[in-house]
Amino acid sequence: MVPGEAAARPTSRARRHDPGRRDRIVDACLDVLAEVGVAGTSHRRVAAAADVPLGSMTYHFAGMDELLREAFGRFAREAAAQFERRMVEAATPEEAVRAVTLLVTHDVFATQRDLVLSHELYTLAARDPAYRTLTNDWMRRSREALGRHFDPTTCRALDAFVEGMTIHRALDTEPHDDADVLDAVRRLTGVPAPGDA
């Protein structure tokens, strides 16, 4: 054997320990979706964004549909959790009214990324019943959170108001007045301003 021959032989590479890889892929998928939409999202783009080998995509997910469901599911669960936190923190009807107002003015679609992801999910849900389960669960959790303070009919109206008003505020080119949102929430809930009761 020639000296140094053994060192020249290729050795098998140890598998990289990366326990958070699947989560990183899901997070990267959301970033790619926000940037290029569902139509532009591919395994290659997500792998590059997650800084993982392309083969990791098929190792962790059966296909793009499974990855999209996982990513949008995470997004919807996080949005619903924020909704729930706001409503749990409210201890009085007045605080509940102000919590709903903050959901519209600060939380729902707080960033352009959230707005785009929401609309990408809505479009998928409109076409594919499998994604409707995600949006239905999101709406159910929102109404349950509102139900800590309001009756079921009011909850449905408030949930629709939050969704619709946030879309209008996100897309409108005119400036917004948060006081208008607060006034509308009072009208829907019947909770008067302090001193008006």
Rank of each mutant, 00 (worst) to 15 (best):
A130R: 15
V88F: 08
E144Y: 12
L54G: 03
D159M: 10
G55V: 02
A34S: 14
F83Y: 13
F75P: 09
F109V: 03
V97F: 00
R132F: 07
A49Y: 01
D128V: 01
E66L: 05
I25L: 07
Q112N: 11
A47C: 11
R141L: 12
R74F: 02
D128N: 15
F150M: 07
A126V: 09
F150A: 13
Q82S: 04
V26G: 06
A126Y: 12
A39Y: 01
A96I: 03
Y122P: 00
T101G: 14
R74W: 07
R85L: 01
R143L: 08
A39Q: 08
A76S: 07
R141N: 13
F75Y: 13
F61N: 04
T111M: 12
E95H: 13
T154E: 04
Y59L: 05
R77D: 15
F161W: 08
L33Q: 10
V162L: 13
R85K: 07
T92I: 05
G164Q: 10
A81C: 01
D128K: 14
E78Y: 00
D31H: 12
G63A: 00
M64H: 10
R98G: 01
T92N: 06
D159G: 15
A157F: 11
L158W: 08
D137F: 03
D51Y: 06
M57K: 05
L117H: 09
F75A: 10
H149F: 13
V52E: 01
L54N: 10
S142D: 04
G63N: 13
R44S: 14
S56D: 12
R148S: 13
M139G: 05
Q112C: 06
A110E: 11
R148E: 07
E70T: 14
R113A: 09
T166K: 05
T133V: 14
E70W: 07
A125V: 10
A50C: 06
P152Q: 04
M57C: 11
G55K: 02
F75K: 14
T101S: 15
R74T: 09
F61R: 08
Q112F: 09
A48L: 11
L30F: 03
